[in-house]
Amino acid sequence: MITVNDFNGKVKPDWCPACGNFSQLTAIKGALTELQIEPKNTVIVSGIGCSSNLPEFIRAYGFHGLHGRVLPVASGVKWANSDLTVIGYGGDGDGFFEGTQHFFHTAKRNVDITYIVSDNQIFGLTTGQASPTSEIGFVSKSTPDGNIEKPVNPLTFGLAAGATFVARAFSGDPKHLTEIIKRGIQHKGFSFIDVMSPCVTFNKLNTYDYFRKRVYKYEAKDLKDFSAAYRISEEWGDKIPIGIFYEIESKRYEEMDPVEVEGPLVTHPIYSVKDEDLEELV
């Protein structure tokens, strides 16, 4: 029996008190526990940013890599050992600026990874510059006169790319967040969860209060309805929906690759070349 304590890391998180990342850490541990996934079979791959420090704070196999490169590393891990539960974790700058191309293509490939983005609509670690999800007019160190660039919508982007699981959650609702992460991990294929996660130090606009006033729980009538998912993903303003917007079953990359289907690559024996293999070169 695996308990939450099994996932307790020995390093204490160094995030600012009340940072939205805390509840995501708790939620990830909770979801893994509920699913009885062993720490030894869990790999958390992150990028660079405040949020990306997370692997250090959890007892599992952690990979704290480069800014923007969460998903290719996570894909490599999954393809090397498809028995592992692979979670990609990073910031909005990490995923939607520096890592945009990887997000697009990993979603499209339907690699069996759960990708959680701590979306605080700002660069936290670099002390407060506008991010790809910062709202128009948002004043930050890099946009002292207010942001003039339209924010990206990670959810419609994920849908357009072909993600087979798309959800939004809120750090201020840890129970709901845990449930969504659990569903994301259970999903067979690429699952994307955008977590609205207040940066209490640098983002004075998108605060806990801001979200508490606006978020409501969305229950999809038909999770397979792409148009409905797209429409709900576009909703942002006075009301902000959270929940699972879209989920379909579709072949995973690992199911289609002729070598991957033979089971986790790490378990394949090393190929021993026979002389006959080389006859084509004579």
Binding site: V43, V45, F63, G65, L66, R69, L71, P72, V73, A74, S75, G76, V77, K78, W79, A80, N81, L84, Q101, H102, F104, H105, L265, V266
Partner: peptide
């Protein structure tokens, strides 16, 4: 063959990390 060389090298690193 992946989306770019950045992903290619990071994938290879992920693969080696996981033991192949």
């Amino acid at each position: 063959v992946s989306e770019d060389e950045i992903s290619a090298i990071n994938m290879a690193i992920g693969g080696n990390y996981a033991g192949v």
